[in-house]
Write a protein that binds this DNA or RNA. Structure first.
Lengths: 144, 144
DNA sequence: TTATTATATTAGAATTATTATCATTTAAAA
DNA sequence: TTTTAAATGATAATAATTCTAATATAATAA
């Protein structure tokens, strides 16, 4: 079974932090919870969401916390061509489609593709590299 | 046969531009030639290289030309997590590995992978999307 | 060849996201 | 409760990129 962050209670979050020896602060919890509610948000979007529950948190802190959670491998980040950084929970493996027209990033889940890639890179080792991430970055236009 | 930009003469470059109805300017040629000599350079690196042959060109112009050549599908761009934009010729299809430690982008050529992906997305259409780009973005650490 | 004109180049200002600094506060161990 | 290393916050600094508007030029047509 795949535990997705959507199911995490406040106690679960505290546990994730404590188990890694990370101090539990209200700011970290708030940022993590905001990330649970959003899809690969930009920092600006995280700030906006966090402010609903925690109006006094500063932008600095949001930046600090997001970067820190990345270092701890609790969340991950990626940069779109627009130049903004986006963050997301390390839950289910997925890829991204970037909408060039609207400058929007969309999750792309594809279990079959995952298996193909995993299978491929299991047999094919890239010499001299220790690969930690593998994401397909599709780009195009959404036809509505 | 695959014509890679390394083999292009000045006349070839003029032809590429003219055939698309693009004005041929010394600045555009210089930028394009610089791109032929470098591997997915950042704008700063392009500027440095172009300056060797064309010291009076401005940074503005380099930005303009690179963006313009992208619009014309002559070159393409991608952004690393460091935040800088990188440009490269649209020659042979390839992917990228991003070295998280050194903040360096490396080309990853893999014909077998290309066929697998092409094959896969031939049979699997992503509904409501017109996909124009498909790149694998690997990240990790180089073991020297 | 020259005149015309739409387009390209340029210098510099403005913007934007992000990072750095450092004083203040706080979580959690002793 | 006290202690202290670490986290937060206000603000300044930076870096890459975009914008603006004046000037210059490539390519077309006369």
């Amino acid at each position: 079974m795949n535990i997705t962050p959507d199911h995490l209670s406040l106690e679960d979050i505290r546990k994730i932090f404590s188990s890694k020896g990370i101090k539990v602060t209200p700011q970290r919890i708030a940022v993590y919870q905001a990330l649970m509610r959003l899809e690969h948000p930009s920092v600006e979007e995280v700030v906006e969401e966090v402010h609903k529950a925690f109006p006094t948190i500063t932008v600095s802190t949001v930046y600090n916390v997001l970067e820190f959670l990345c270092d701890q491998d609790i969340i991950s980040k990626l940069r779109t061509n627009s130049g903004r950084m986006h963050y997301e929970n390390n839950s289910t493996k997925h890829h991204h489609i970037y909408d060039e027209e609207k400058d929007v990033l969309v999750d792309y889940y594809d279990e079959e593709l995952n298996s193909i890639l995993t299978e491929y890179f299991k047999k094919k080792q890239i010499v001299d590299w220790k690969i930690s991430g593998c994401q397909l970055y599709l780009s195009g236009k959404y036809k509505e």
